[in-house]
Nucleic acid binder design. Structure first.
Lengths: 186, 186
DNA sequence: GCCATGCAAGTAAATGCTCACATACTGATC
DNA sequence: GATCAGTATGTGAGCATTTACTTGCATGGC
């Protein structure tokens, strides 16, 4: 059985639990049941491994947003589709998504300026919604942050073990209603 | 001028920027314009310094919630008071609050079970609001997470530099409306 | 004189990473 | 199908560097 995917899984778990700086290559290797050297056959450095894993999740999330939001019309429908899609994807690979969620700030410098990060995409959707008078006017950056916060904080609390063992999807309809309420609130 | 407060300020900044594990005692000392040894006159270890700073912010926030929520009646009023109080406190000491916000997950083991953390307090307020029929029924843990997320994600995005140089308070009324909408959404 | 505070140099341990070597796979050649 | 070079993959001991922390000494207020 090849080591690369085992290393990726192990790294994801260790990074999510200890952070990128707190994680050691020894720990990752041990968890993957692989020697430390094996890591360096596939990645130049610990940071490159971390960045690779993160950016994969980041792009996957961006693509998800593009696809799901493009498939329906109207801000309300887009919001519902996005919440549902995020919940489903997170439940399918909780390790990946909690890593992405909890370690976001470590990777700010790497995605900040590519213009295709999830936050910017949501901001754009909201801006259009305001132009089309589907939403009341307001600072799209703040409205996007608030709407996103409804999801991310719930997911974080689940990651912290505050919501029991329920899937995130179990709360999808409640979160959808909350997001839609935030968008219209003023 | 005594070194202790200078070290505290410097540590706060460095921890906020690099995380607890990413921060080095050298960097903290350099930023405080103090030798590394000076740190160990006042704290036993780097971790004790970090925990001390964090728990101070954590207790201060818990006290704030207790005081502000106790001063008014009704969930709506409590929500408004809490949002305003958080914004004001955060603006007054942005370094402290962004450190608290961004490094929360590093300190989970230390406050999780003390029952007086901000999240639990908010959950309690919401639970009472539901009992008194001021709020529609629902899982208080999820509703609390969503309401808190409106604030924390906005604050995070400001910390990431996505909201310009505005004070957090500049968005307080928008956030209040959003939080109240979340509480009532179902 | 005494204690708290600060400094500069130093130490032991840990960490990311390398390297010489071993093994497993691939596919072209006979 | 057997042979064998060439390459990709994995090992584990070890290296240079960094890191948190210590220690002996100087200073200054009371």
């Amino acid at each position: 059985m090849s080591a690369k995917p085992r290393i990726e899984r192990a790294a994801l778990e260790v990074f999510a639990a200890h952070g990128v700086d707190g994680a050691t290559t020894k720990l990752i290797a041990a968890r993957a049941e692989v020697s430390e050297g094996a890591i360096y056959r596939h990645w130049k450095s610990k940071d490159e491994l971390a960045i690779g894993l993160f950016m994969a999740a980041h792009r996957r999330l961006s693509d998800l947003i593009d696809t799901e939001a493009g498939a329906v019309h109207g801000v309300e429908a887009k919001a519902a589709a996005l919440v549902k899609a995020y919940c489903t994807a997170a439940d399918e690979d909780w390790t990946l998504f909690s890593f992405h969620l909890l370690q976001l700030h470590h990777f700010l410098p790497y995605y900040q300026d590519d213009g295709r990060d999830p936050v910017t995409l949501v901001e754009t959707i909201i801006k259009y919604g305001m132009m089309k008078m589907e939403l009341p006017p307001g600072d799209p950056r703040v409205v996007a942050a608030m709407a996103i916060g409804v999801i991310t904080q719930t997911a974080q609390n689940k990651a912290y073990g505050r919501l029991g063992e329920d899937a995130l999807s179990a709360h999808a309809s409640l979160m959808t209603a909350a997001v839609q309420a935030v968008l219209k609130a003023r």
